[in-house]
Simulated scan of single mutants.
Amino acid sequence: MKKWLAFAVAAALSACSSSEDKTYYQLPVVAQPVAQSQTLSNHQLWVDQVTVPDFLAGNGVAYQTTDVQYVIATQNLWASPLDQQLRNTLVANLSAQLPGWVISSQPLGSEQDVLSVNVTGFHGRYDGRVIVSGEWLLYHRGQISKRPFWVELKQEQDGYDAMVSTLSRAWQQATQGVSGQISRLP
Score class of each variant (00 low, 15 high):
159 G>I: 02
66 T>A: 12
31 A>G: 06
91 V>S: 09
91 V>T: 09
158 D>F: 03
179 S>Q: 06
63 Y>D: 07
89 T>C: 08
125 R>Y: 00
49 Q>F: 00
64 Q>D: 04
52 V>R: 02
123 H>C: 01
8 A>I: 11
57 A>R: 05
95 S>R: 04
163 M>L: 15
133 S>K: 10
183 S>P: 01
154 K>V: 12
166 T>I: 02
127 D>R: 00
85 Q>G: 08
67 D>R: 13
98 L>G: 12
180 G>L: 05
113 D>I: 00
17 S>K: 07
173 Q>N: 10
84 Q>V: 15
115 L>T: 05
81 P>I: 07
12 A>I: 06
86 L>N: 10
5 L>E: 08
7 F>M: 14
172 Q>R: 08
113 D>H: 13
115 L>Y: 06
105 S>F: 02
92 A>H: 08
176 Q>H: 08
101 W>V: 05
68 V>A: 15
121 G>M: 06
56 L>C: 04
36 Q>T: 12
73 A>M: 08
122 F>H: 05
61 V>M: 10
97 Q>F: 12
58 G>M: 07
104 S>N: 11
145 S>M: 09
84 Q>D: 14
118 N>T: 15
36 Q>N: 07
82 L>Q: 06
114 V>K: 15
80 S>F: 04
25 Y>M: 07
107 P>C: 09
151 V>Y: 01
75 Q>R: 13
53 P>N: 11
